[in-house]
Write a protein that binds this DNA or RNA. Structure first.
Lengths: 198, 198
DNA sequence: AAAGTTACTTACCGATTAGTAAGTATATTA
DNA sequence: TAATATACTTACTAATCGGTAAGTAACTTT
């Protein structure tokens, strides 16, 4: 017998993945600056220094969390874009967005909150991710407007911002109240809501 | 000649008011934990210790900022409630809310973000303020639903949450993009939007 | 079996955090 | 004019922050 004296290593090789997962949980609930590296480490039952073996900085972890979240969101938007009709594309897009946002609140919050006055790196990164997201969604809106399925009172970009702001607000409102969001029901209402041309 | 050697005191007696004002500016832009007492003091060109002459803690300053903001918001909602028709009450309410939120973003953010895992005091205070706000708004929604002016598919409280979440989301979306919100135009759209009974 | 690599831990760093104790200049009151 | 209250500043905590250097146990390769 030679083992069982110290906790064995190399059993789980996915520490980096675990770090991002725990960090995502924390950043979803609290702001960037109120989540410390120690908080993340403690939850993983490792030391803070171990985090720096896998990541060079706190910024890198946060950006990692955001990138993963935005990538997954973009993927689920892409799925919606393959729907056959324009109406279905919008409807499924909203539904997927709401479902996704409910689980990835850090993404929603990051899109709304400035980090700190001196952290330009993260700030610029978030603006880039937001632009990607708006560029993915706005074609659907444009299409709907072109087909006279949506109000054309406002321009497309503004209407897209309005939709995103609406969805983000709803997600956070429900999350704060610890309520589950019924995505298909709410998506239905939003679609009805957006059909302004009477 | 005996003066002019040191900056004279007692010239401005409203330091406490100034502190709340500057703090509100900072908390509107950044999160609770990323605004330090030193940040507030520096902007006022006083020392951090001076803040503790007027307030017992950072929490107290933050709660002071929120109380003032929510009180002002409630007052502007009350103004809307004195409108003659139900439709006007809802419309002016939305318009005032959007105008107000655009200037008092700290209030909107506080209503959406958890502060820190161990700060129960502020958290509970915010929940109380949110309840007050919802109790002020929901009667208008109830009235509209009762008069069949609004969709009654969802219950009143849910519809109120939906409206608030929507407005908050829009305010933050616009603020992040550094865009001004055209409150009367957007209020118009939201009213149209909420009139779901077709 | 020796050497090297991986995945950490322990122990520290300087800076910053919220908060405090003690001193001080000014203005008010007795 | 002396005592007191007001509105601060200076100088300091202890704790925590992000981050690092050095050591080490376990596994892999030679």
């Amino acid at each position: 017998m030679k083992s069982a004296t110290k906790p064995q290593r190399r059993v789980t090789r996915d520490t980096k993945k675990n770090i991002l997962e725990i960090a995502q949980n924390l950043f979803s609930e609290y702001s960037y600056s109120s989540v410390s590296m120690n908080d993340i480490a403690k939850k993983l039952k490792i030391t803070k220094a171990a985090l720096y073996y896998h990541f060079v900085s706190k910024e890198e972890i946060y950006i990692g969390v955001l990138d993963k979240a935005y990538n997954d969101l973009n993927a689920s938007i892409q799925v919606a874009l393959s729907e056959k009709t324009v109406e279905r594309r919008l409807r499924v897009l909203i539904e997927n967005y709401l479902d996704f946002g409910a689980n990835e609140k850090s993404l929603i919050k990051s899109a709304m909150l400035k980090i700190a006055s001196d952290n330009f790196k993260i700030q610029k990164h978030i603006v880039k991710l937001k632009e990607q997201r708006i560029n993915l969604i706005s074609p659907v809106i444009e299409e709907m407007v072109a087909n006279k399925k949506l109000s054309s009172q406002a321009d497309d970009k503004l209407l897209t911002s309005l939709l995103i702001g609406m969805m983000d607000g709803l997600i956070l409102e429900y999350s704060f109240l610890n309520k589950d969001i019924n995505s298909s029901k709410v998506a239905n209402q939003i679609v009805v809501i957006l059909r302004l041309n009477n």
